[in-house]
Amino acid sequence: MGNTAYLSAREFTARVGQPLIDLILLLSIAILVFAVLPQLRTYTRFVVLALFAAFAAGWLLLVSFHYQIATHLVLVDPTGQLPPGSFTIPVWVENEKFYFWTLILGLLTVVGRRRPKAFQSTLELTFAGFGILTFFTSNPFSRPLADFHAGFTQYVQAVSTGQDMQVQVQAYYAMYGKMVGFYNSAYMWIHPPLLFAAYSTFVLAFIGCIFMLVKKQERYDKLAYDWAKPGFILLTVGLLIGYPWAVEAWKDQPWWYDPKVNVTLMMWLLYSAYFHARLYIHRRGMWVTTAILGYVAFLGVVVTYITTYVIPGIHSVAG
């Protein structure tokens, strides 16, 4: 079954990942400190690059852990009716989600060129803030894939301790359902990453909208718009791709007007309103309206993300 190899890979991920996440916290704090100390500000760029490198290294470690799962773990039907299955789990589930979002934000922070200095500095501070949040709220190395681990351990215990066949079959089907409908689902590989990529670009659009009101310069409107565009395409396509998945996975359960579905649609509607407002940005009052819609829409992104963890529902992990 390869369970020993899996357990050792999990232990390795936690052992190597913990110093990495500590480093992420230190570098994030350093960026914040450098921002208030003018004599150190020139080094910020290097620290930002180091922070991104630490995030990327951590992500490669997670990729390696998921690869170990895919190659070592096998789910065997105790009745022998179904063929053995393996888990191809994407690297953006459970507490890896926020890490993945921050990783993309980090990429967008370090690859940008010719941005206004104030915008770039704010973006770097935001990236650092995301780094700190990752450490305190979404550390993927403290208990790697905790839910998956709990489910698989339950299945292994049921099978290896020779429990009653009915218990074994129940434990198998609990894991099999998740494997087919969630972990190995093709939608899982497309729907979440599109949304997280969208969320990352919306961070940049939001910063642009802040400067639209603070500096009142066209270049900030253009920056906000340039980043809202790819975000909106990714968000729209990502959401649409989620629909057939919802129909397939939740066919017997009520999911329409689920809290997460509601706030996700709200976010999309607000970005749509932002784009419509921007068509007439040079009309009286529309500059401010566009910028405020950009703020409110980003607030929608934050609310959408938090809802998963706070409000119970079919699309949530809360409750």
């Binding site: 007007y257 689920d258 809290p259 997460k260 509601n262 706030v263 649609l265 709200m266 976010m267 509607l269 607000l270 749509s272 309103a273 419509h276 407002a277 309206t289 819609l293 409110v296 929608g300 609310v303 809802t307 706070v310 409000i311 119970p312 529902g313 409750g319």
Partner: peptide, 22 residues
């Protein structure tokens, strides 16, 4: 713009109500 924003606000209320009920 007004209609899109209004539907968005209704969705937020819906989520809040759903939260309280849960």
């Amino acid at each position: 713009i007004v209609v899109l924003s209004a539907i968005g606000i209704i969705f937020i209320f819906g989520s809040g109500y759903s939260w309280v009920q849960s």
